[in-house]
């Protein structure tokens, strides 16, 4: 009898122990941030959002998982740690990879068309629209009906109305 109760209590305590383990499932870890310093990571992300991945070309470095982007991210982290300013870091990259690495190209003689071309096109189209509308207004005014035409038109309209009434 004592043996049985003992056995039962061990069983119960075993189940109880198992129940205690359940919360452990919830302990699965969150993803560990890549860099140890969130401040550096934030600055790095802001910088890389305006930089082009030269391998994938239509992706920013912050979006890209290419080897190239990993290297540039690492380089930027190191430079931030070395107290470089954002401008210095961007200049470092432009010196090596050219303006193409910037999503926001600087205004230079070679990029004037890129920057101001759309504005010029817009002005040209607005100009031609105004020109066209003015000319059209003149044309409309010129085509006034003569007295005879007016009478004829009225007669036709009347006829049409009669037809409808029938």
């Amino acid at each position: 009898m004592t043996f049985l109760t003992h056995c039962k209590s061990t069983k119960v305590s075993f189940v109880f122990l198992l129940l205690l383990l359940i919360p452990l499932i919830g302990w699965s870890k969150e993803a560990i941030p890549v860099a140890e310093d969130p401040e550096i990571e934030k600055r790095m992300l802001e910088l890389t959002m305006d930089l082009r991945c030269l391998v994938c070309q239509n992706e920013t470095i912050s979006d890209s998982r290419a080897e190239f982007s990993n290297d540039i991210r690492r380089e930027i982290r190191e430079q931030i740690k070395a107290n470089k300013t954002d401008d210095e870091i961007v200049q470092f990259l432009v010196d090596r990879y050219g303006d193409f690495i910037l999503y926001n190209p600087p205004v230079k003689p070679t990029t004037i068309l890129l920057w101001f071309g759309p504005v010029v096109l817009f002005l040209i189209s607005i100009g031609s629209l105004i020109f066209y509308l003015r000319r059209r207004r003149v044309q409309i005014e010129e085509v006034l009906l003569s007295q005879a035409q007016r009478e004829k038109a009225e007669a036709l309209l009347k006829e049409d109305n009669k037809g409808k009434n029938v």
Binding site: L54, D95, R96, Y97, G98
Partner: peptide, 9 residues
């Protein structure tokens, strides 16, 4: 060729 990015170097 868009892959040929002129090098500033």
């Amino acid at each position: 060729n868009p892959r040929q990015v002129p090098s500033p170097l």
